[in-house]
Write a protein that binds this DNA or RNA. Sequence first.
DNA 1: TAAATAGTGTCTGTAAGACACTATTGA
DNA 2: TCAATAGTGTCTTACAGACACTATTTA
Lengths: 244, 244
Amino acid sequence: MSDDQWVPPTVLLAVDLVILTLRESRLQVLLVERGIEPYQGALALPGGFLNHAEEDLPAAAHRELAEEAGLDADHLHLEQLGVYGTPGRDPRGRVVSVAYLAIAPRLPEPVAGTDAAHARWTPTEQVLPDPTRLAFDHHRIVTDGVERARTKLESSALATAFCGPTFTITELQAVYEAVWGTPLDPRNFYRKVQGVAGFIVPTGRTRRTETGRPAKLFRPGPRQALHPAMTRPTVLSNEEKPQT
Amino acid sequence: MSDDQWVPPTVLLAVDLVILTLRESRLQVLLVERGIEPYQGALALPGGFLNHAEEDLPAAAHRELAEEAGLDADHLHLEQLGVYGTPGRDPRGRVVSVAYLAIAPRLPEPVAGTDAAHARWTPTEQVLPDPTRLAFDHHRIVTDGVERARTKLESSALATAFCGPTFTITELQAVYEAVWGTPLDPRNFYRKVQGVAGFIVPTGRTRRTETGRPAKLFRPGPRQALHPAMTRPTVLSNEEKPQT
DNA sequence: TAAATAGTGTCTGTAAGACACTATTGA
DNA sequence: TCAATAGTGTCTTACAGACACTATTTA
């Protein structure tokens, strides 16, 4: 600290994106096939270095979102997930990556012939169990992103961000079931979700399905913080099982 | 992106520490008086640049913790808070800072004659209301750190990290009251905290106070995640007040 | 009609919060 | 004895979860 010649080291700064959506009733994450070394040919999160030294971090995240997934900011939740900067995580040198979590309603297949051509949706249930499937430390980042999404679903109105502008309660339930990976009781969910003030508001319209009673349509309400919170069914560890 | 000459920009990487403790029944944060420009003479969070390009982030956080607060890793909770990297936040150039939250039991006054000589404890209630009191964007970082601590107190056993190796239930309550900034009912708190399996375990000993019945002593239990969670009294916004 | 999905009623157990009460110490 | 702090009992209300039941559609 008292070395007069010392100058602080510099690092390369990147953003990585965990983009989650719901397709085929499953939670899916956008992955790209890497075209260059390192990890050429492997699957990785979309992302990249800052464009220039003055680019803002959220701006870089939005730019990558547009470039690699063809997504504009509409209906889009974007939040910082964390920093991943272990020395050696990138063979090119000291790269520190800021991960962002993006959540979007039902998204289309990436369009061929664009920058997003090598992108593909992959169910998280295929990615999470295998830590070696992704390049760099991206498996850890995806794991953290999914866990963040699960937690946020409990206490915030984030679930509606997975839906279109209007939705049925059953559709909303499907979001919770897909993200949490647990089945929920439809009747309890129905009343529960309506009892949370400001979470969803009825539109007065209904939506016909192939068969069965038409369902009322709702849109997102004004509330971001949910009271009472949605409760994720607790997977009981051995220690907390009731003693019979 | 198709410019063959383009090379990614580099940035300066720093760590900043929000070190919280409990002194005089108040939540206090460690601040240092800056000895150099920019913001010379102003109060700021302890922290600094990476020592060398290969230093790990948590290692840098621990190093600053030792240098600026004289703290070793004992009894210490340390977690990543977030990245603060807005262009222009530091007049010296593009500095991206990774903030860490550290929580420690009752800490002594910083020792004069060490690197920590210019450090001082400051009650958060004096810092939080005034966004101009701290250098850089450190007010925001402190705000985020305190909010993180408040939230973690609800669902994790973090509160015991503010206490010594053994503590009374009343002391534990004082932690919750200081961090949350709300009074709690001692009788309900007493039963509540004992009903949370694995949170605290009785030592069998008691501690005498100046006056009044001696209190049972407890030590931290094995559980990190609390079930049921401690509930922070909800400050009702206008919208959610019950309609009479 | 049956099959399917939407939506309601009701009960039980757990837990939060209010608050009266008892217990054990020092002065 | 009183003052002070520790600890218990009990009631009310909220809410999670189980699950029987009714409602409205298409085939």
